[in-house]
Amino acid sequence: MKPAAPFDAAQDLADAPRTGGGQKPKDAATLILTRGGDRPEVLMGRRAPGHVFMASKWVFPGGRIDRSDFTAASCGELSSDVARRLEAEMPARRARALALTAVRETFEETGLILGRPAPPASVAGPWREYRQAGALPDLSVLSYIARAITPPGRTRRFDARFFMAPVEALRDPDRIEGSGELDEIAWLPLDEARALDLPAITRFVLGEMAERLTHPDRPLPFVRMVRGQHVVEHRD
């Protein structure tokens, strides 16, 4: 199975130059939100210039897993297909936590709530504002579409899982309230998104996302570096 577009290994190395060190990748999750039919759009944000990692690049909302994601409540669980793919890589508890990471990080960075109405609840930690807004995450709407590990020796390393969901899963898709981590957030047609300053992995996953809108059963790509070379594997 060939990827939707070639992965630009040279650009990936330029996006985050090697600085040395032996950091282990940290689990992270990203959420790709889509809307529109004939002319699909995707939600993206530009990272603020002061970031150590991928400064000023356009990316999808996301971030690393938090301890609270393992115990956060939800009103809908992962579909059997998504759970199967994730649990081939990790225990079920961690798979669910990573899906919740994608929902939480998207809320923190954009203010958008992927979930269903629920009585406001008082909880401690990173989920506090989400739950106070009167919602519970609905993981059943998520598709798992890609995985990528940052090459060794970078200032930040992530083992990132990319999830996708339609705009209909959002409670109020027009209420975007950025936290400042992304200094610009916008719904963009795919051709406009491709013209932005994107990290290589974001550009690659954007291509995968576009293909999945019409071919949702595509094998899942896994991008990583093996013995100094980028490798893209596809898994059913």
Results as ranks from 00 to 15, higher is better:
Val59Phe: 05
Ala88Tyr: 09
Asp38Tyr: 05
Thr19Val: 15
Ala48Pro: 02
Thr19Phe: 03
Thr19Glu: 14
Gly36Cys: 03
Pro61His: 02
Val52Thr: 15
Pro91Cys: 03
Thr71Arg: 06
Pro49Leu: 06
Ala16Arg: 14
Ser56Leu: 02
Thr30Lys: 10
Lys24Thr: 12
Ser74Pro: 00
His51Thr: 01
Arg93Ile: 10
Lys26Phe: 09
Ile65Trp: 08
Asp69Phe: 02
Arg46Asn: 09
His51Asn: 13
Gly62Cys: 10
Arg39Ser: 08
Ser56Cys: 00
Ala48Asp: 09
Gly50Trp: 12
Arg85Ser: 12
Gly20Leu: 00
Ala28Pro: 12
Ser79Met: 12
Lys26Asp: 14
Gly37Glu: 13
Glu87Gly: 02
Arg47Leu: 15
Met54Trp: 08
Arg18Glu: 14
Gly21Cys: 04
Glu77Ser: 04
Leu43Ile: 11
Arg64Tyr: 13
Val82Asp: 06
Arg47Val: 15
Ala83Arg: 14
Pro40His: 02
Pro61Val: 08
Arg93Trp: 08
Val59Lys: 06
Gly22Met: 11
Ala72Arg: 01
Gly20Glu: 00
Val59Ser: 02
Arg67Glu: 15
Ile65Lys: 04
Ser74His: 10
Thr19Asp: 04
Glu89Tyr: 04
Pro49Trp: 05
Pro61Gln: 06
Ala83Cys: 12
Gly36Asp: 01
Ser74Thr: 03
Val59Leu: 13
Arg85Met: 10
Ser74Arg: 01
Ala88Phe: 12
Ala48Thr: 13
Arg39Ala: 08
Leu33Pro: 07
Cys75Asn: 10
Ala92Ile: 04
Pro61Met: 06
Gly50Ser: 07
Val59Tyr: 08
Ala92Asp: 05
Leu86Phe: 04
